[in-house]
Write a protein that binds this DNA or RNA. Structure first.
Lengths: 137, 137
DNA sequence: ATACCAGTTTATAATGATTCTAAAGTATTT
DNA sequence: AAATACTTTAGAATCATTATAAACTGGTAT
């Protein structure tokens, strides 16, 4: 597990006070080589198991939104009752298994760059997201 | 405005009883050459203005879900507080203006076919949706 | 026509994710 | 150490959507 000091510095640099709760959430989210997808309720469960600590639901929401604003997380556009987040903030796309409610990364090599030929006057493209819904064969 | 008999037949063919409410919603949704995007609350407003009739919110939800199941509507994957539907059921993609909460169609010629090179054993692709988020320049 | 049945509509309540509130707590600055 | 600004928190509020169950209606058989 990465030591707190590294997260403390990371948080400070972003203008976020390094509180106990934020450090704990950093550890749960970023203390792994593999990136992953999660919902808020997934994260609450992870905090309860990985860290033996209870963080208020409001704080979890606050923190995730703060991290998203700082660019440490990305929200993924899916129509689902819950919002999904991704610790992989690079440009990439997703499979979504609607049965298992599971997201799977598509690497850059899995999808050719999507070129959008249409332009809207006065508007610029912020992001291009491809969502591939999959189902059992 | 298309006459009711045509919608009555269309509904019957799909195994849906042609009720007053369903016919009215058909007229509001399909009585136009141009397809469009809407949320449930958009639709409720449309029904109130175009048709001078009140349809219960529960019925609007029921009907839209029935129409979606029959393939007369498509749900669009966006992370938004409300779900968006599209009367254009052909394969196409979208711009989404997050400020104005507005969807704009991308025609086939605006986006090259998206080829997905990755496969998941036992799973087949159901849909490929591209969502292009746009913002003021 | 009439009566019946399955499918529909409806008002209202329930649900559930998310956001708000405002009081108590904590990091940082003076 | 005190002041200040930012955070956390429990619980309430919000809001889209879904569930409930009673009243209603279209289609069919009599």
């Amino acid at each position: 597990m990465l030591s707190s000091p590294e997260y403390i510095e990371k948080l400070r640099k972003s203008g976020l006070r390094p509180t106990k709760q934020r450090i704990k959430i950093c550890q749960v989210l970023f203390d792994t080589k593999k990136t992953f997808h999660f919902t808020i309720s997934d994260l609450v469960k992870l905090i309860e198991t990985k860290a033996n600590e209870k963080i208020s639901l409001a704080t979890v929401y606050n923190t995730i939104h703060a991290f998203e604003k700082k660019g440490y997380l990305k929200e993924i556009s899916i129509n689902s009752s819950q919002t999904y987040f991704d610790t992989n903030t690079t440009n990439h796309h997703h499979f979504f298994d609607e049965k298992q409610k599971e997201l799977i990364d598509l690497e850059d090599i899995d999808v050719d760059p999507v070129k959008i030929k249409k332009t809207i006057p006065g508007k610029k493209i912020k992001s291009v997201e491809v969502l591939v819904k999959i189902d059992s064969e």
